[in-house]
């Protein structure tokens, strides 16, 4: 330190600020004049500070990760509580189901219930239908070789999809329930009332011919009915929905617009042959040839 007098020091002290202002103005002008140098200086400083910034970013990321995992833990705790409650509820339902099954078994035993045959089924991949007389039909890669017969029932993962109308050796055409040619007898699950579900080439087939005193209720389940003998009773189809007042439609459970796999069930409905009743003129069975009733009549005569 150079020894200077107090007056000199005070004078120098007063000069420092103006000098610095002038220096900064000089730097402004210099920086504008030589941008490359300014950028170089900037980059040198940034390079020096880069590890520090990296450290801060890492700390921030860590803090964010910790806070998010804490939030996640809180969410998981609430989810866990919810699941436990649901589990308790389900356990109760399990007990109810077990007791109901037992009761059902006892009742069936008491009634000498004849068990229904387990239906045979084959599963095939759906390929797009390129031809045919139907607007809403799909082609299944499974045919008579695999045991598929005309009139078999095709089920998607969670609901009825359609019926087999034509069969080849290795393929079968399935008429979907949305086709305009499709008319199915159905049953409304809540009221056990019957109706006809008719397709109209839209995704939502209409409900027709239901009894006026048991109208379909919004959200009601619709299942198949065994009225005409074409389907076994109780296959799930969909739920009732009102597009407009007085125009109920069925929202199918099966996603009919993009089917990938279909199970084709042979419920053996065709084998159910009503025993002969003398004096009773049977109506024409839909899938029995007309010769049969004639034969019966002839037999009678």
């Amino acid at each position: 330190m150079i020894p200077v007098s107090i007056q000199m020091r005070q004078a120098l002290g007063k000069l420092v600020l103006p000098l610095l202002v002038l220096l900064s103005i000089g730097i402004i002008i210099g920086g504008q004049a030589d941008r490359k140098l300014a950028d170089k200086a900037r980059m040198t400083v940034a390079d020096g500070l880069a590890p520090l910034w990296g450290l801060m970013t890492a700390a921030q990321n860590r803090a964010q990760a910790i806070s998010s995992s804490l939030r996640e833990a809180g969410r998981m705790a609430s989810e866990n509580a919810r699941l436990q409650k649901e589990n308790d509820n389900l356990r109760r339902w399990y007990d109810v189901a077990v007791s109901l099954t037992r009761e059902n078994d006892t009742l069936k035993t008491a009634l000498h219930w004849i068990p229904e045959p387990t239906p045979a089924f084959v599963t095939g991949r759906v390929v797009a239908d390129s031809g045919g007389i139907y607007a809403r039909a799909v082609l299944l890669v499974a045919g008579t070789d695999s045991g598929v017969r005309v009139g078999n029932v095709a089920l998607a993962a969670n609901g009825l999809a359609g019926r087999v109308t034509e069969t080849g050796a290795r393929s079968a055409r399935i008429l979907l329930i949305t086709d305009i040619a499709s008319r199915l007898p159905v049953m409304l699950d809540a009221s056990h009332a019957t109706a006809i579900m008719g397709g109209d080439n839209t995704p939502l087939p209409r409900l027709m011919y239901y009894a006026q005193d048991t109208r379909p209720i919004e959200g009601e389940r619709v299942v198949t009915s065994d009225q005409a003998g074409a389907f076994p009773a109780g296959l799930p189809i969909g739920t009732v929905h009102y597009l407009h007042p007085g125009q109920p439609v069925v929202v199918p459970f099966a996603q009919l617009d993009h089917l990938t796999m279909l199970r084709v069930f042979d419920f053996g409905q065709a084998l159910i042959d009503p025993p002969e009743a003398p004096g009773h003129v049977p109506l024409a069975h839909p899938r029995q040839t007309l010769t049969l009733p004639l034969k019966t009549l002839l037999g009678q005569g």
Binding site: L17, L20, S24, I25, I27, I28, A38, V45
Partner: peptide
């Protein structure tokens, strides 16, 4: 004053303001 000048210059170097403006 010197500290202020250096800090301003540092701010300019780190940030994107023209060199010397913050110091000034």
């Amino acid at each position: 004053g010197v500290a202020v000048f250096l800090l301003g210059l540092f701010m300019d170097l780190v940030g994107f303001t023209p060199l010397g403006v913050s110091a000034f």
